[in-house]
């Protein structure tokens, strides 16, 4: 296999290994699953194109994050209708998010546990919100609540899960 192909193969392996981290990194800047996924795809293509520039002695993620950040900014510019935080703040969040990655990964491990503990009714709502194609209007209708109430419930679930994760991590540390 030529050196060119070997470089590409190495990058592909790294991309596969770190795909979820890259997705979360982008989602933090562009909190819409579909858009984040599209940006991830574009960023992945840019990363593969630049495979030959990657220095294998250096960590992959910080290098890849730069592509993800620039691709996100480019995406935002093309779609001006998206309401978004400023580029300056997003860059700061991106940088701090990368520094906190170990902590965030620990929180996600605890999230799996907390989802199991979530009361059945709330778990159903999580499933509908994230695992189905239903619109929010449809979910509200199925839950027989107003949209306003539905959004309040989702906010409460996020609060509950966040607190549960904090509790779980505190227990693990003690």
């Amino acid at each position: 296999m030529s050196e060119l192909n070997a470089n590409h193969e190495r990058i592909v392996g790294l991309l596969v290994r770190h795909q979820e981290q890259l997705y979360r990194y982008i989602f933090a800047l562009l909190p819409d699953a579909t858009e984040a996924w599209d940006v991830l795809q574009e960023a992945s293509m840019a990363i593969v194109r630049k495979a030959d520039d990657y220095d294998a002695d250096r960590p992959f993620l910080p290098w890849a994050y730069r592509f993800a950040l620039l691709t996100t900014f480019d995406w935002k510019r093309k779609r001006k209708k998206t309401i978004s935080l400023s580029d300056e703040l997003l860059e700061q969040l991106a940088s701090e998010g990368a520094q906190q990655e170990d902590e965030l990964i620990a929180r996600l491990a605890a999230l799996d546990h907390c989802l199991q503990k979530l009361p059945l009714k709330q778990r159903d709502l999580v499933r509908m919100r994230y695992d189905s194609d239903e619109t929010m209007e449809e979910i509200a209708r199925l839950q027989e609540v107003s949209l306003r109430t539905l959004y309040r419930r989702l906010d409460s679930i996020r609060e509950w899960l966040h607190d549960c994760i904090n509790g779980r991590l505190a227990t693990e540390r003690s």
Partner: peptide, 15 residues
């Protein structure tokens, strides 16, 4: 913010 949005990112990968 980062804690909440990373949690949301994970949840959004449900299906």
């Amino acid at each position: 913010y980062l804690q909440l949005v990373h949690m949301e990112a994970r949840l959004s990968l449900g299906d």
